[in-house]
Structures are given as C-alpha cells and as structure tokens.
C-alpha cells in the first residue's frame, strides 16, 4: 500500500503585489475523498485551486498531485486533473456537442471516440436535448453541468470544483450534489471550494476553512459544527438597552458567551436546540421583551465568528465577543 495522497501541498503562497491572496496553506487530500475548502469571497480559495491546477504560478511552498510535483512537471499534473471553474469554461461559439468533442480531441481522444464520449456524457448529464444548441441558449445550471461533463472526458482521477453550485437554484443544486457523489463512487477524488457550510456538510468528508489566505480550521463537518454548537438561537430584543442584562441571563443559564450585534440582536450558540426554552424563560423572568426569536442550524457566518472572530462579509467590522 502506498500512502501518496491525491493532493499534498505545503506552505502555499501566492502574492499579487503587496496582497497575499494565499499565505502559507497546507493541504492534504486523501485518495477517494471529497475535500471541501470553505470560505467567504476573497478568502483565497480560487487562487489556491488555480495554483494546484497549474493556472497560476506557485510563489512559495510546494504541491504534489498523486506524487507529481506541480511546479516542476505541469504537463503531467494537467493529465491528472479535471478543472471546473466558477464561471463555466466552455466555448460560447460552439454547441454542447462540439464543445465536448473539441475538448476530447485536444486530449488525444480519436475523433469517433470523442463523439461517442460526448454523446454519452450529454446523456449522463441530462443535456441530450440541448446537444446541438449554442451555449448562449443554456441556463446557468445547464452550463455548469456541461462544464463538469467537459472535465470528465478523459476520466481524470482528481476533479477540482470551484464553487460548483454558486448561483444555482435549489433543485439544480441537489442534482449537482448527486453528480459529485457519483464521481466519488466511480473512484474519483474531489477537491471542491464552497461558500456554503451546508454544501460542505452535505458533500465533504473533510473541510478546511480558509480566511484571508490562511487555513483557520480543518476537520470533519461534525467537528467543525461542534465548535460552534449544534444550533443557534437568534434573538431580537424589544429594547436594545436590555442587551447587557440579557447577556448576563444567557451567561448564567448556559455558561455561554452570546454574540451581540447592533440594534438589539443577539446570537447564542446552543449544544442542543431545546435549551433555547431555558433562555426564553430566563429572559421573561428578568422582564426583558423580545420581538423575534428563531433557532437555526449554524451558518457559515457563525462558524466564521467562532473560528476567526470576524464576520464573513466585511473584515473591518470586528464583532465584539
């Protein structure tokens, strides 16, 4: 048994001028797993993927794909990868069929076989009716599926998916998830980036959380969620002046520090959803009025708050903890 991983990267660094988009990230993806890279826009996810896919040079650090050095041997690396970008990278001037045929030909598939593979993939991705339509008439979901199909022509052992479902409607998103699971069942290894915790949760065996070019956490989805509690109680107080008193109530009842944001809002991490009742009762006893209450699964925002101490959206808005 060899122990060469599908992806092995150490201390990856990529700078654009003074800005370090990726700042010393280590990555270890085992064969046959779905590895999720989770982070907000601008965290450096796409940059990292592009470095591993030979689309951007590696400024510092090293990366290996199935033991092949990415920097020294880009041609071999490219033969091991299928890359599906954030924006569909298919040719607008060609039909779906022509696109797949072209990408097959460019990778040395004989013409007849390229045609068969194209037909086969279009069938598998539910695009056979649109096979001869120009891409300009395709919906976002269809483009994404065609893009993924184009990555699979030579059945590469490793697939990179850069935000595969961003901008898709929920139904199409579910289909995409099924497709990704099928890939792994077929023996592929998948490295995907996403902004959605639930996507990483649904798909990934392991997740790395990336923020401002750093890896801030890594673990299984359950491990990550456990770090922020299993659910979150979101409260809005009738009077923002009560916030300090309400925070005391929460601290006394749960031993947990609530996250307070402007205009009377308060978030409390709960290890079990039914503990929300204790907080609500406690607040009523203290005479604190509430205008809205909800209990939700933790969102990426909350994971971020806990892991990094700041919001996903604006880095300069440091939230008091």
């Amino acid at each position: 048994m060899t122990h060469i991983p599908a992806v092995h990267a150490e201390g990856l660094v990529k700078s654009f001028g003074d800005f370090r988009a990726v700042d010393g990230v280590d990555l270890h993806v085992a064969q046959g797993e779905i590895f999720g890279v989770l982070g907000p826009n601008g965290a450096g996810k796409t940059t990292m993927l592009k470095m591993l896919a030979t689309l951007l040079s590696i400024d510092m650090g090293r990366a290996e794909i199935f033991g092949v050095d990415v920097r020294r041997d880009p041609h071999r690396t490219r033969q091991l990868l299928g890359v599906t970008g954030q924006y569909a990278s298919v040719d607008e001037n060609l039909t779906a069929n022509e696109n797949l045929w072209l990408f097959g030909r460019l990778q040395g598939v004989p013409s007849k076989k390229a045609r068969d593979t194209a037909a086969d993939l279009l069938g598998r991705f539910g695009l056979e009716e649109a096979a001869n339509k120009p891409i300009s008439q395709f919906s976002g979901g269809m483009r994404r599926r065609l893009d993924l199909a184009a990555s699979l022509i030579t059945r590469p052992p490793l697939i990179f998916l850069d935000e595969p479902t961003t901008g898709l409607d929920p139904r199409t998103r579910g289909q995409m998830w099924d497709t990704i699971r099928d890939l792994v069942a077929d023996g592929c290894t998948v490295l995907l980036t996403t902004q959605y915790l639930d996507e990483a949760d649904q798909l990934a065996d392991r997740i790395a959380v990336i923020d401002r070019g750093y890896k801030v956490a890594e673990g299984t989805p359950d491990e990550l969620k456990a770090s922020v509690g299993n659910s979150t109680l979101q409260l809005r107080l009738a009077d923002a002046a009560d916030l300090i008193m309400a925070a005391d109530v929460v601290r006394r009842l749960l031993g947990e520090e609530p996250v307070i944001s402007g205009s009377g809002r308060m978030n409390v991490a709960l290890d079990a959803a039914d503990r929300a009742a204790e907080v609500l009762i406690g607040l009523r006893e203290a005479g604190i009025g509430i205008t809205s209450v909800s209990v939700d699964a933790p969102t990426l925002d909350e994971v971020f708050l806990v892991l990094t101490g700041h919001d996903t959206a604006e880095p300069e808005l440091e939230v008091a903890r």
């Binding site: 490219r78 890359v83 298919v90």
Partner: peptide, 12 residues
C-alpha cells in the same frame, strides 16, 4: 474568455 482557462488547464 472562460474557455481559455480550460485550454490552459488541459495537457495540450
């Protein structure tokens, strides 16, 4: 265009 990203990522 996006398709050039794919051309670049292929072993061509």
């Amino acid at each position: 265009k996006g398709v050039f990203d794919r051309f670049k990522s292929l072993p061509m």
